[in-house]
Design a binder for these strands. Structure first.
Lengths: 331, 331
DNA sequence: CTGAAAGCGCTTACAG
DNA sequence: CTGAAAGCGCTTACAG
């Protein structure tokens, strides 16, 4: 900037005023400054600007996902980016791998680089450590799951409602032996989906059978084995409700390998690629990941625009998409 | 930091020395500083530190993808993150949507926030605009595609070799009418894969048939229509080589809908979810996206560690994964 | 080993 | 409208 000022023959103040565009400057001088800047290929140091500016905004936000390579989160991220771009905001992104310490380290890194806001898919754990930064003006929105021990804006899918919808759909198709395959119940989404399953059974007066309730961890391979175990058991289910995308994939592989994909009904939570190409097509209740992201970003920017008042908790619907696997009748 | 110094009863210099950990400080003083910092919940402002430090490193890098929500890029990103974490580096990420202006705006934003390095999946276009920053010490690595008009490190998959492998595999299975479905040939990867297709045909002495060469744009729905058009034509292919994941998905849907998935062979470039669940399983040549990311990150950090010398161009292999669809014989 | 002072690249009251 | 000066939160020669 010094060089630009020297070349244009004006003071640093004037260069700053021209380049930041706010204050009134003589058009002739402004033009001289602009052409000097262009000639030198000058680029403003945004971080130095942030340091001195009154608003102290860095125009960057931090995203903490469970795993950036999970297509669900990358779709959420894309929704956020589309909104952030309109605000000229850049995004830092990192993975917590579901480890609270790692999430916290990530948040620390984001904050020490002066982000204006945080969008977090919270790990299971205590989030009160964010209270302090929040009180100091940091904007925070939680997505996919609500946090614990902190009151803040959140955007989640209707996990229990969507799950109840899925299970009720199977019940309406005549099923009574419906297995539940879900992530560990400590995880909020897993617990909510399990609750939806139980609610739907309860509404229909169907007792829960502990043998049909399984919690394979996350990975598709475990879901595969769990499915094999279930269908080979003494009283196998006539339908499966697989409450997470990787679990759906594992279960689907197992049913196909065993040749049972036309015998045992399946409804999954979360849409998956090729769900409509497999035969029968995979019936799912679908989350709208980009919409979750857009909504989270809008809440965040409204906080940055000065929104006060009680926390907002948005729940997005999860419609049922019928493709065949969920419409198979019990034998 | 002022507050920490006051509470510990030392100068700012001493606090800085203790917290940055380099210089020798009296252990007693150091302890006083550390407990004062802990008491106040002090967090160092990393950007201010960057501004003044001799090395001027911000410990952040920028990633410019075509689309952050494309699972291929999010897998590359994860590979980068794993390496970056070891170096305590944070990553900015954004999408260019294959638009050169958008990529450039993204790079500008990254640079004005002082990133130490850039990993770019380049859009088709001129990248000489990066020369200047590169000369000024910015580390740059290109991934997935090489850049044009700039010499820099790059990491790509063996697009032509993998494609030739795929097509030779079909030829070895007895096919001679093999259709090519690829992205627009202006895109580097598309051109390379097309070259591999032609090379394999040439090696086998099979003439190219223009009717069998199609360039549906990117989206799965176009690939669907192209496939329908191909197989309903007067001299339909007996095999398809679909040279991109979304194209593979579109073609697969079309074959399944038309009931031709056991008649017409298919090999895709890039692995896809459920490829082993569809019947027949989808034969592909697979890229190792996390490995591309890790390698790109390692090249980047070696530049930051002072690597000099000619640019390095890494080509990662793309093995063939046989699952059934590529092993169907011509009727 | 420690502190006072200068300065990184900017912005912003404050005079003029 | 313009410039000289102070200062954002840090680090780093420079004396002591």
């Amino acid at each position: 900037m010094k060089d630009v000022a020297a070349l244009a023959g004006v003071s640093l103040s004037t260069v700053s005023r021209v380049l930041s565009g706010g204050a009134a400057v003589d058009p002739g001088l402004a033009e001289r400054v602009r052409s000097a800047a262009a000639l030198l290929g000058y680029r403003r140091d945004h971080t130095a600007s942030t340091l001195r500016r009154a608003d102290r905004q860095s125009a960057s936000i931090g995203l903490a996902w469970e795993d950036v390579s999970n297509p669900f989160f990358s779709a959420v991220q894309r929704g956020i980016e589309d909104v952030a771009r309109e605000h000229d905001m850049l995004t830092f992104v990192g993975s917590s791998d579901e480890q609270p310490e790692r999430e916290r380290a990530l948040v620390e890194s984001f904050c020490s680089r002066g982000v204006d806001g945080l969008i977090i898919a919270p790990t299971t754990g205590d989030h009160s450590y964010l209270q302090r930064d929040r009180a100091l003006g940091l904007a925070i929105v939680f997505v996919d799951r609500p946090p614990r021990f902190i009151d803040a804006d959140s955007v989640v899918s209707d996990n229990s409602g969507g799950s109840a919808l899925a299970v009720s759909h199977l019940i309406a198709g005549g099923h009574r032996r419906i297995a539940f395959l879900g992530d560990r119940p400590e995880i909020y989404t897993a617990a909510e989906r399990f609750a939806g399953y139980r609610a739907a059974l309860g509404d229909a007066g169907i007792p829960q059978d502990p043998h049909l309730i399984r919690h394979p961890r996350y990975h598709a391979v475990n879901a595969y084995e769990t499915t094999v175990d279930l269908v080979r058991g003494p009283e196998p289910p006539t339908a499966l409700f697989t409450s997470q995308n990787l679990i759906t994939i594992g279960a689907l592989r197992a049913l196909h390998d065993l040749g049972l994909h036309r015998e045992i009904a399946l409804v999954g939570f979360d849409d998956i690629v090729l769900a409509d190409t497999v035969r029968p097509g995979v019936t799912v209740v679908a989350q709208d990941a980009p919409a979750l992201g857009r909504m989270a970003a809008e809440l965040l920017f409204s906080q940055l625009d000065g929104h006060e008042g009680p926390s907002r908790h948005v729940v997005l619907p999860t419609p049922l998409i019928e493709r065949g696997s969920g419409e198979l009748r019990p034998r």
